[in-house]
Amino acid sequence: MGTDDAVVVEGLRKDYGSKQALSGLDLTVRSGTVHGLLGPNGAGKTTAVRILSTLLRPSAGRAVVAGYDVVARPDEVRRRIGLLGQHAAVDEELSGRQNLEMFGRLYHLGARRAAAEAEALLERFGLADTGRKPVSAYSGGMRRRLDLAASLIGSSAHGDGDGAGQRVLFLDEPTTGLDPRGRNEVWNAVRSLVGGGTTVLLTTQYLEEADQLADTVAVIDAGHVVAEGTPDELKAKLGADRIDVVVRDVAQLEAAASVVGMAAGAAEVTRDPDRRLLSAPVGDRMAALAGAVRGLEAAGIDAEDIALRRPTLDEVFLHTTAKEAGAA
């Protein structure tokens, strides 16, 4: 492995009886980057995170986090990671400050350092004025931010061995169950971490989230990686750009589909009657656009909007996971 790799996973397997949660997961996360682990429910995302954060032993394979094997040296790994599980794992009855000070003491910072770090983290995550309220009175977004703060406790530790300052954070579906406002709060908090050299492995079901936050994305399904790359590379993998057409009258959607399909030279045109939208992959962008405009006009179809765009991660996701299902 390269010394720049914060996480290296090779052939990781986890069996529960005859059920395989992970079936040979391979993964590399470079230091200081955000890596998205994208997959549907039951794909093995949480199992992977639990193994990487030393909570679960793998059945086979190898996982190295911050330079240490998770099975052989769990203590060394624990000094260098932060975990954000699916629930905000903070003590609901204590205040934010009490929570952070408690975790600081458990990182053996000493009472004064623990209090100072708690204060700094509350400030940094915009929780300074709520530091005395019990967490049970926090909003979902605030809880998550406190959770993030807790996972960073001790990361500015000096004299605590090498690399103690460089955290590897595991965020398991950090915005599940949050309203859009809470989601934005958490996204901003995550973005603010990355500048400081923190490495983030983020699992999500939301493609938009991976697109927003991740430098690289691994699409995982049935316990292993089915596609990997930057969000742009993944979109490129699906191939073509797409042409989207919104018609004014939904009754004309079918007619428009055949016109646009012809112009784009595409065999397959997707239709969304609710949004009066159709979409087709294109080879030659300009020819397809010009052809569609002319064809629609000639057929007397009134278009509200015509646009060329890159495929979304949603489409990459459906495409890659459907291919897997077909192959299995």
Binding site: L55, G82, A88, A89, V90, F103, Y107
Partner: peptide, 14 residues
């Protein structure tokens, strides 16, 4: 256990 607090304790170097 259900709130994930134990998981957090298990993932820190205490």
């Amino acid at each position: 256990l259900n709130r994930g607090v134990i998981d957090r304790f298990r993932s820190i170097p205490m």
